[in-house]
Design a protein around this nucleic acid. Structure first.
Lengths: 224, 224
DNA sequence: CAGGTTCTGCACACGATCTTCACAACTTGT
DNA sequence: ACAAGTTGTGAAGATCGTGTGCAGAACCTG
């Protein structure tokens, strides 16, 4: 994970919002605050947070709707804040895509702990800023790739191909899929084109990185 | 992830342990219970749970040590149970690799909700669906097969054949069926082709895996 | 526009895989 | 135990898929 984590707090109660924001800033996060649903959704799109802390009770439309809309465009972990006993909201929230929840009142310490857990989990899976698979590091923002600390210069197609594979580590992808996703789609495109790019990736990043699955396609193996 | 999820509950208070186990069983999980640290670690290795619910206060050695040991061998999500106010234990627990926690007293409903969230998250992250039949593990996304932890290299036809059988454990499949499903369909294809592939599978994965049903076909037996 | 880079498609060689065959070993029913 | 049918086995040929190098096309960039 590169740089600072960004957290968006969507909470209409100014006092709570500020406490939360202050605590998270103290923990080293970059924090944005929205006080209603529509601006929450807007900020989620503009601020591109790594995590959203979301009150379910909001003016405009409610938190569940916000949750749905945020998740619709981009997969972001959501920590929901619910009133105690609001189990219906809670269950709906989890169904809608929230990843965790806290019931009010909660301690700032508890909030911080949960935020850290959620982000740790996310970075373990897929980070929005960089992909790290063993000694392979892909800096998505900078479009740079390093293997065992050594930077490799990749052409655009090679890079896209690598990222597509790296986002699905060890999952086998058919040539056709790779051709369509990474290279553009041409009528009558030859799937042998993929071979050429795979070959280039192997030359630049090591032959062990990409596994050939005979008769199917390729998969990226997590290197050590 | 195939079939039922397995949950291990490590909790010394028999009443709590049974309530938790009962609730989780009602939710459709396969549940094992351990009442102290050492047997918790042992069961984690033997029962191979998809998730562990772990009390931090345990006879033997404490829950944090159990957590460490469980995580040491295999990555399993851990839901910690802590006494209210035990924030030190809590933070250490999260550091040691717990993925979530509940403070006592908690409602069974809350527990069940968290268990579901954790498992959903894991299946989302690790994604790779897999078939597990005893010591045979088929990673469908990666198209990889392991028996008793040892990876076997299978050819495309062998793999397809195995998956077809593994999706219908113990069910006998006619040669013609296998020929059509796993191998492509040729006019006038000889069903003896299947024999060759079965033979290869037996050589690579052990002779006990595939049972011959004389005059009918083959069936995959769940190995112990 | 010149010079470079990148993408794509092709052909060949090699290796992996599939299929078949003949014969041995086995199962089943009588 | 025997005969008939079925399955296991090993090997060999046919087929298919992939790695590789190369060259023209397409694409930037200054």
């Amino acid at each position: 994970m590169t740089g600072q984590r960004r957290v968006l707090v969507v909470e209409d109660d100014i006092t709570i919002a500020e406490s939360v924001a202050a605590r998270l800033r103290a923990e080293g996060f970059v924090v944005a605050v929205a006080h209603d649903g529509p601006s929450g959704v807007a900020q989620a799109a503009a601020f591109l947070p790594d995590l959203v802390v979301l009150d379910v009770m909001l003016p405009g439309f409610d938190g569940l709707e916000v949750c749905r809309r945020i998740q619709a465009s981009r997969s972001v972990p959501v920590l929901m804040l619910t009133a105690r006993g609001d189990e219906t909201d809670l269950l709906v929230g989890l169904a809608v895509g929230a990843d965790d929840y806290l019931t009010k009142p909660f301690s700032m310490r508890e909030l911080a702990a949960r935020v850290h857990v959620l982000l740790r989990r996310v970075s373990r899976a897929v980070s929005s800023q960089s992909l790290e698979l063993g000694d392979l590091v892909i800096d998505l923002a900078a479009r740079r790739v390093r293997r065992a600390g050594v930077e490799a210069h990749l052409t655009p197609t090679e890079y896209d191909l690598l990222v597509f594979l790296a986002e699905r580590p060890s999952a086998v992808q058919a040539r056709e899929r790779l051709l369509a996703e990474a290279c553009g789609w041409h009528e009558g495109a030859s799937s042998r084109t993929v071979d050429s790019h795979v070959k280039a990736l192997r030359r630049k990043l090591g032959a062990d990185l990409i596994r050939t699955v005979h008769g199917v396609g390729y998969a990226l193996e997590v290197p050590r």
